[in-house]
Protein backbone atom coordinates (compact mmCIF):
# COMPACT_ATOMS: atom_id res chain seq x y z
CA UNK A 1 0.00 0.00 0.00
CA UNK A 2 1.22 3.45 -0.73
CA UNK A 3 1.10 6.28 1.72
CA UNK A 4 -0.69 8.89 -0.24
CA UNK A 5 -2.81 11.65 1.07
CA UNK A 6 -6.00 13.15 -0.25
CA UNK A 7 -5.17 16.09 -2.38
CA UNK A 8 -6.40 19.50 -1.64
CA UNK A 9 -7.35 21.41 -4.72
CA UNK A 10 -5.05 24.35 -5.34
CA UNK A 11 -7.88 26.82 -4.86
CA UNK A 12 -8.53 25.47 -1.41
CA UNK A 13 -4.90 25.83 -0.47
CA UNK A 14 -4.66 29.28 -1.86
CA UNK A 15 -7.79 30.53 -0.19
CA UNK A 16 -6.95 29.23 3.22
CA UNK A 17 -3.33 30.31 3.20
CA UNK A 18 -0.54 28.88 5.27
CA UNK A 19 -1.56 30.57 8.52
CA UNK A 20 -5.12 29.35 8.33
CA UNK A 21 -3.99 25.86 7.44
CA UNK A 22 -1.69 25.75 10.42
CA UNK A 23 -4.43 26.98 12.72
CA UNK A 24 -6.83 24.38 11.38
CA UNK A 25 -4.16 21.73 11.78
CA UNK A 26 -3.58 22.74 15.37
CA UNK A 27 -7.27 22.60 16.24
CA UNK A 28 -7.39 19.10 14.72
CA UNK A 29 -4.33 18.16 16.71
CA UNK A 30 -5.95 19.27 19.95
CA UNK A 31 -8.57 16.61 19.44
CA UNK A 32 -5.85 13.91 19.52
CA UNK A 33 -4.74 13.89 23.16
CA UNK A 34 -1.59 11.82 22.62
CA UNK A 35 -0.47 13.76 19.58
CA UNK A 36 -1.15 17.03 21.33
CA UNK A 37 0.93 15.91 24.30
CA UNK A 38 3.74 15.00 21.92
CA UNK A 39 3.50 18.41 20.32
CA UNK A 40 3.73 20.13 23.70
CA UNK A 41 6.76 18.03 24.69
CA UNK A 42 8.53 18.93 21.44
CA UNK A 43 7.74 22.62 21.99
CA UNK A 44 9.14 22.42 25.52
CA UNK A 45 12.29 20.76 24.20
CA UNK A 46 12.75 23.41 21.56
CA UNK A 47 12.25 26.16 24.12
CA UNK A 48 14.66 24.41 26.48
CA UNK A 49 17.23 24.21 23.71
CA UNK A 50 16.81 27.86 22.72
CA UNK A 51 16.72 29.26 26.25
CA UNK A 52 19.15 26.80 27.83
CA UNK A 53 21.36 29.62 29.17
CA UNK A 54 18.37 31.09 31.00
CA UNK A 55 16.65 27.89 32.04
CA UNK A 56 19.49 25.65 33.15
CA UNK A 57 20.16 26.13 36.87
CA UNK A 58 23.90 25.60 36.33
CA UNK A 59 26.34 25.86 33.39
CA UNK A 60 26.65 22.52 31.61
CA UNK A 61 30.34 22.16 32.26
CA UNK A 62 30.48 23.58 35.80
CA UNK A 63 32.37 20.97 37.78
CA UNK A 64 32.15 20.75 41.50
CA UNK A 65 34.00 17.68 42.64
CA UNK A 66 32.78 18.18 46.20
CA UNK A 67 29.26 17.56 44.95
CA UNK A 68 30.08 14.53 42.77
CA UNK A 69 27.50 11.76 42.37
CA UNK A 70 24.84 13.27 44.57
CA UNK A 71 21.40 11.77 44.42
CA UNK A 72 18.45 13.91 43.29
CA UNK A 73 17.75 16.68 45.77
CA UNK A 74 16.23 20.14 45.97
CA UNK A 75 19.49 21.64 44.77
CA UNK A 76 20.10 19.16 42.00
CA UNK A 77 16.70 17.89 40.92
CA UNK A 78 18.12 15.03 38.91
CA UNK A 79 21.33 14.59 40.90
CA UNK A 80 24.93 15.17 39.84
CA UNK A 81 27.44 13.17 37.81
CA UNK A 82 30.97 12.06 38.64
CA UNK A 83 32.35 15.57 38.20
CA UNK A 84 29.63 17.12 40.31
CA UNK A 85 27.90 18.53 37.24
CA UNK A 86 24.17 19.12 37.55
CA UNK A 87 22.41 16.48 35.45
CA UNK A 88 19.27 18.53 34.83
CA UNK A 89 21.35 21.41 33.50
CA UNK A 90 23.28 19.06 31.26
CA UNK A 91 20.06 17.56 29.94
CA UNK A 92 18.74 21.03 29.12
CA UNK A 93 21.96 21.95 27.35
CA UNK A 94 21.93 18.53 25.73
CA UNK A 95 18.53 19.32 24.20
CA UNK A 96 20.43 21.79 22.03
CA UNK A 97 22.59 19.01 20.66
CA UNK A 98 19.67 16.66 20.10
CA UNK A 99 17.53 19.31 18.43
CA UNK A 100 20.43 20.46 16.32
CA UNK A 101 21.11 16.91 15.15
CA UNK A 102 17.47 16.14 14.45
CA UNK A 103 16.79 19.40 12.63
CA UNK A 104 20.03 19.29 10.64
CA UNK A 105 19.39 15.74 9.47
CA UNK A 106 15.80 16.62 8.58
CA UNK A 107 16.93 19.75 6.75
CA UNK A 108 19.27 17.63 4.64
CA UNK A 109 17.14 14.55 4.20
CA UNK A 110 13.77 16.27 3.59
CA UNK A 111 14.71 18.34 0.51
CA UNK A 112 17.03 15.67 -0.88
CA UNK A 113 14.45 12.91 -0.55
CA UNK A 114 11.70 15.19 -1.85
CA UNK A 115 13.64 16.22 -4.93
CA UNK A 116 14.76 12.69 -5.80
CA UNK A 117 11.26 11.35 -5.25
CA UNK A 118 9.33 13.94 -7.24
CA UNK A 119 11.87 13.90 -10.05
CA UNK A 120 11.45 10.14 -10.35
CA UNK A 121 7.68 10.31 -10.07
CA UNK A 122 7.24 13.26 -12.41
CA UNK A 123 9.46 12.14 -15.26
CA UNK A 124 8.78 8.42 -14.88
CA UNK A 125 10.33 5.98 -17.34
CA UNK A 126 14.07 5.55 -17.27
CA UNK A 127 14.71 8.42 -14.85
CA UNK A 128 12.29 6.80 -12.43
CA UNK A 129 13.83 3.36 -12.85
CA UNK A 130 17.38 4.57 -12.21
CA UNK A 131 16.55 6.85 -9.28
CA UNK A 132 14.36 4.27 -7.58
CA UNK A 133 16.87 1.48 -8.06
CA UNK A 134 19.46 3.69 -6.43
CA UNK A 135 17.01 4.48 -3.63
CA UNK A 136 16.27 0.81 -3.08
CA UNK A 137 19.96 0.01 -2.89
CA UNK A 138 20.53 2.62 -0.19
CA UNK A 139 17.37 1.47 1.54
CA UNK A 140 18.78 -2.03 1.75
CA UNK A 141 21.84 -0.84 3.70
CA UNK A 142 21.84 -1.34 7.43
CA UNK A 143 21.73 2.31 8.40
CA UNK A 144 23.11 2.24 11.93
CA UNK A 145 26.08 0.05 11.01
CA UNK A 146 26.83 2.17 7.99
CA UNK A 147 26.58 5.33 10.06
CA UNK A 148 29.02 3.76 12.52
CA UNK A 149 31.48 2.92 9.77
CA UNK A 150 31.25 6.41 8.26
CA UNK A 151 31.68 8.03 11.62
CA UNK A 152 34.72 5.86 12.23
CA UNK A 153 36.28 6.71 8.87
CA UNK A 154 35.57 10.43 9.00
CA UNK A 155 36.51 10.85 12.64
CA UNK A 156 34.10 11.10 15.53
CA UNK A 157 32.14 14.28 16.07
CA UNK A 158 28.71 15.82 15.95
CA UNK A 159 28.94 16.96 12.33
CA UNK A 160 30.18 13.58 11.19
CA UNK A 161 27.27 11.98 12.99
CA UNK A 162 24.82 14.30 11.22
CA UNK A 163 26.30 13.47 7.82
CA UNK A 164 26.48 9.75 8.58
CA UNK A 165 22.83 9.61 9.64
CA UNK A 166 21.70 11.70 6.67
CA UNK A 167 23.42 9.41 4.19
CA UNK A 168 21.03 6.56 4.89
CA UNK A 169 17.92 8.40 6.06
CA UNK A 170 16.64 9.90 2.80
CA UNK A 171 15.34 6.83 0.87
CA UNK A 172 12.00 6.44 2.68
CA UNK A 173 11.26 10.12 2.00
CA UNK A 174 12.14 9.68 -1.66
CA UNK A 175 9.82 6.70 -2.04
CA UNK A 176 6.99 8.55 -0.38
CA UNK A 177 7.48 11.70 -2.48
CA UNK A 178 7.57 9.59 -5.63
CA UNK A 179 4.27 7.94 -4.79
CA UNK A 180 2.73 11.35 -4.18
CA UNK A 181 4.18 12.83 -7.35
CA UNK A 182 2.75 9.96 -9.39
CA UNK A 183 -0.71 10.97 -8.23
CA UNK A 184 -0.23 14.71 -8.49
CA UNK A 185 1.24 14.73 -11.99
CA UNK A 186 -2.03 13.39 -13.38
CA UNK A 187 -4.24 15.99 -11.78
CA UNK A 188 -6.09 18.51 -13.89
CA UNK A 189 -4.37 21.49 -12.46
CA UNK A 190 -0.93 20.17 -13.39
CA UNK A 191 -2.24 19.37 -16.85
CA UNK A 192 -3.60 22.90 -17.10
CA UNK A 193 -0.26 24.40 -16.09
CA UNK A 194 1.46 22.21 -18.65
CA UNK A 195 -0.89 23.41 -21.39
CA UNK A 196 -0.09 27.06 -20.85
CA UNK A 197 3.55 26.15 -21.16
CA UNK A 198 5.05 25.84 -17.71
CA UNK A 199 8.58 24.41 -17.79
CA UNK A 200 9.51 21.12 -16.13
CA UNK A 201 11.37 22.92 -13.38
CA UNK A 202 8.46 25.24 -12.73
CA UNK A 203 6.00 22.36 -12.64
CA UNK A 204 8.23 20.40 -10.27
CA UNK A 205 8.95 23.20 -7.85
CA UNK A 206 5.71 25.18 -7.87
CA UNK A 207 3.08 22.57 -8.64
CA UNK A 208 4.27 19.11 -7.64
CA UNK A 209 6.58 19.73 -4.70
CA UNK A 210 4.11 21.78 -2.59
CA UNK A 211 1.53 19.02 -2.91
CA UNK A 212 3.99 16.44 -1.58
CA UNK A 213 5.22 18.54 1.32
CA UNK A 214 2.54 17.64 3.91
CA UNK A 215 3.15 13.90 3.69
CA UNK A 216 6.91 14.42 3.65
CA UNK A 217 6.63 16.49 6.82
CA UNK A 218 4.65 13.72 8.50
CA UNK A 219 7.22 11.16 7.48
CA UNK A 220 10.04 13.42 8.67
CA UNK A 221 8.38 13.80 12.04
CA UNK A 222 8.19 10.04 12.43
CA UNK A 223 11.80 9.82 11.24
CA UNK A 224 12.87 12.29 13.91
CA UNK A 225 12.22 9.62 16.51
CA UNK A 226 14.59 7.28 14.73
CA UNK A 227 17.15 10.03 14.24
CA UNK A 228 17.06 10.82 17.95
CA UNK A 229 17.73 7.17 18.73
CA UNK A 230 20.48 6.75 16.14
CA UNK A 231 22.22 9.92 17.25
CA UNK A 232 22.05 8.76 20.86
CA UNK A 233 23.46 5.37 19.84
CA UNK A 234 26.38 7.04 18.08
CA UNK A 235 26.95 9.20 21.14
CA UNK A 236 26.79 6.17 23.40
CA UNK A 237 29.41 4.38 21.27
CA UNK A 238 31.66 7.46 21.45
CA UNK A 239 31.19 8.38 17.79
CA UNK A 240 28.84 11.34 18.14
CA UNK A 241 29.30 14.57 19.99
CA UNK A 242 32.46 14.33 22.08
CA UNK A 243 32.80 14.92 25.82
CA UNK A 244 32.52 17.22 27.61
CA UNK A 245 29.53 18.10 25.40
CA UNK A 246 26.37 17.08 27.25
CA UNK A 247 25.13 14.67 24.58
CA UNK A 248 22.48 12.38 26.08
CA UNK A 249 23.85 9.12 24.65
CA UNK A 250 27.37 9.96 25.75
CA UNK A 251 26.04 10.82 29.22
CA UNK A 252 24.53 7.33 29.48
CA UNK A 253 27.82 5.84 28.39
CA UNK A 254 29.69 7.75 31.10
CA UNK A 255 27.04 6.99 33.72
CA UNK A 256 27.16 3.23 33.06
CA UNK A 257 30.08 2.83 35.42
CA UNK A 258 28.06 4.14 38.35
CA UNK A 259 24.90 2.32 37.42
CA UNK A 260 24.78 0.06 40.46
CA UNK A 261 25.07 2.71 43.13
CA UNK A 262 24.32 6.01 41.41
CA UNK A 263 21.67 4.88 38.94
CA UNK A 264 20.43 8.39 38.22
CA UNK A 265 23.55 9.33 36.28
CA UNK A 266 22.70 6.94 33.44
CA UNK A 267 18.95 6.65 33.91
CA UNK A 268 18.02 10.33 33.62
CA UNK A 269 19.48 10.92 30.14
CA UNK A 270 17.79 7.70 29.02
CA UNK A 271 14.43 9.11 30.04
CA UNK A 272 15.23 12.27 28.11
CA UNK A 273 15.88 10.22 24.96
CA UNK A 274 12.83 8.03 25.52
CA UNK A 275 10.50 10.99 26.05
CA UNK A 276 11.83 12.89 23.06
CA UNK A 277 11.57 9.92 20.76
CA UNK A 278 8.13 9.03 22.11
CA UNK A 279 6.95 12.61 21.54
CA UNK A 280 8.10 12.56 17.91
CA UNK A 281 6.39 9.21 17.38
CA UNK A 282 2.99 10.17 18.82
CA UNK A 283 3.09 13.56 17.10
CA UNK A 284 3.92 11.90 13.78
CA UNK A 285 1.14 9.34 14.23
CA UNK A 286 -1.38 12.06 15.03
CA UNK A 287 -0.28 14.17 12.07
CA UNK A 288 -0.69 11.20 9.78
CA UNK A 289 -4.17 10.55 11.11
CA UNK A 290 -5.14 14.17 10.59
CA UNK A 291 -3.72 14.54 7.11
CA UNK A 292 -4.78 11.10 5.94
CA UNK A 293 -8.13 10.07 7.40
CA UNK A 294 -8.01 6.82 5.45
CA UNK A 295 -5.05 5.74 7.48
CA UNK A 296 -6.86 5.80 10.82
CA UNK A 297 -8.40 2.42 10.17
CA UNK A 298 -4.90 0.88 10.25
Amino acid sequence: MQDTFPLKTPTQTRMSGAGMALRRFYSDLRREPLGHAGFIVIMILILAAVFAPLLAPYPAARQSLGEALQSPSAQHWLGTDEFGRDILSRLIWGAQITMRTVLSVSAIVGPVGLMIGITAGYFGGRTDAILMRFTDVVLSFPSLVLALAFAAALGAGLNTAIIAISLTAWPPIARLARAEALVVRNTDYVAAARIYGASHLRLLLLYIAPMCVPSVVVRLTLNMATITLTAASLGFLGLGAQPPMPEWGAMISAGRRFMLDQWWVAVMPGFAILITSLAFNVLGDAMRDILDPRHTRG
Binding site: I252, A266, G270, N281
Partner: peptide
Protein backbone atom coordinates in the same frame (compact mmCIF):
# COMPACT_ATOMS: atom_id res chain seq x y z
CA UNK B 1 4.59 -0.85 20.95
CA UNK B 2 5.01 2.95 21.07
CA UNK B 3 7.51 2.71 23.90
CA UNK B 4 9.32 -0.08 22.07
CA UNK B 5 9.65 2.15 19.03
CA UNK B 6 11.04 4.96 21.14
CA UNK B 7 13.30 3.37 23.73
CA UNK B 8 17.08 3.55 23.32
CA UNK B 9 17.99 -0.12 23.30
CA UNK B 10 21.38 0.32 25.00
CA UNK B 11 19.83 2.24 27.87
CA UNK B 12 17.08 -0.33 28.23
CA UNK B 13 19.82 -2.96 28.41
CA UNK B 14 21.63 -1.12 31.18
CA UNK B 15 18.46 -0.68 33.19
CA UNK B 16 17.60 -4.34 32.65
CA UNK B 17 21.03 -5.43 33.78
CA UNK B 18 20.79 -3.43 36.97
CA UNK B 19 17.26 -4.51 37.79
CA UNK B 20 17.36 -8.20 36.88
CA UNK B 21 21.01 -9.01 37.50
CA UNK B 22 22.17 -6.66 40.24
Amino acid sequence: SLVGHSIPVFWFGIVGLVVFYA
